[in-house]
Amino acid sequence: MPNPKKQTPAKKERKVNSGPIREKARTMQKMVDAVGTVLQTQGYPGLTIANVTAQAGVDRRLVSTYFGNIDSLVATYLKQNDYWETTAKQNIDLMLQHPDRLGKAEIIGLLQGQFDAVMSNEVMQKTIHWELGEQNKTLRELADRREDTGEPVLRALEKNFANTNIDLRAIIALQISGLYYLSLHAKANGSTFCGIDINEADGKERISKAVEMVVEMVYEKEG
């Protein structure tokens, strides 16, 4: 019997666009990362098209081609690196799947997470300094998105205090702003605050425990 002819495997169709698409994505991310490097080394006055593209090693025209303008590029960086836009938002999305279970543990986790994020991220520290130092459309939009991220959690948590005189929003606002200030104060000049050095592990732990203590006291009063 004649041997059956071997079938030649069909050639896989080459995805013509996959290479350029991946290269574009890599270039865009390189530009986004360059924003962080410039912000860290030169501060927010250094966030110019010339500085960012030089850091990324790309043509200046790619800013308008890929992002429209430098503000949009900076906004992309901030969205990728802000605690409330990334880690906190992911955690909050999970929490809101069971809003009836939200309580003190979730509040403590979000606040301590913010404290750790700001203390460990120099670029985030500079971003907050920038927010405090000037009016800026991009930074205002970032602040508004943070508010939008936290609002569903606050609404769910407030139900636990509906028939009390406890102003949970005000208490959380004081804690968030206090943690921001303590972190910036410690990292900017290295000095102590109320005799506590939060640049040292034991000092940072004291603040973290105090956050937990305040939330515990609020819930004890509510109960």
Rank of each mutant, 00 (worst) to 15 (best):
T8H: 03
K12E: 11
E13G: 00
R14V: 14
K15S: 05
V16M: 11
S18Y: 05
S18W: 06
P20T: 00
I21S: 10
R22T: 03
R22F: 03
E23F: 03
A25G: 00
T27H: 03
T27D: 01
M28Y: 02
Q29K: 11
K30Q: 14
V32C: 04
V32K: 14
D33C: 06
D33F: 12
A34C: 02
V35C: 03
G36V: 09
T41W: 03
G43A: 03
Y44V: 10
L47S: 14
I49H: 00
N51H: 11
T53K: 04
A54P: 00
A54C: 01
G57C: 02
V58G: 10
R61S: 15
T65D: 10
T65N: 09
G68F: 08
I70A: 07
I70P: 12
D71C: 02
L73R: 13
T76Q: 15
T76Y: 08
L78T: 04
Q80T: 06
N81M: 00
D82W: 06
W84K: 02
E85N: 13
E85A: 09
A88V: 12
K89N: 11
N91K: 15
I92K: 04
I92C: 04
P99I: 03
P99Q: 01
D100N: 14
R101A: 13
R101N: 15
I107M: 15
I107G: 12
I108Q: 11
G109H: 14
G109C: 01
L110W: 05
L111D: 00
G113P: 05
G113L: 10
F115P: 01
D116L: 09
A117K: 06
A117M: 01
M119H: 06
M119R: 12
S120H: 10
N121D: 15
E122A: 12
V123F: 01
M124Q: 15
E134G: 04
Q135M: 04
N136V: 02
K137N: 08
T138N: 04
D144G: 00
R145M: 08
R146S: 07
E147W: 08
T149S: 02
G150I: 07
E151G: 05
P152C: 05
L154E: 00
A156G: 05
K159D: 07
K159Q: 15
N160Y: 08
F161R: 01
F161M: 02
F161N: 00
A162W: 10
N163K: 14
T164E: 05
T164P: 03
T164V: 09
N165M: 02
D167W: 05
I171A: 13
A173G: 10
L174R: 07
Q175C: 09
I176Y: 14
I176K: 15
S177Y: 05
G178S: 01
L179E: 09
L179K: 00
L179P: 06
L179R: 10
Y180H: 14
Y181T: 12
A186C: 03
K187R: 15
T192Q: 14
G195R: 07
I196M: 03
D197W: 10
I198F: 07
E200N: 09
E200T: 09
A201T: 12
D202V: 11
K204W: 02
R206A: 15
K209F: 08
A210G: 02
V211S: 10
M213G: 01
M213A: 14
V214P: 00
V215H: 07
V215P: 09
V215L: 06
Y219V: 07
E220V: 12
E220F: 06
K221Q: 13
G223W: 10
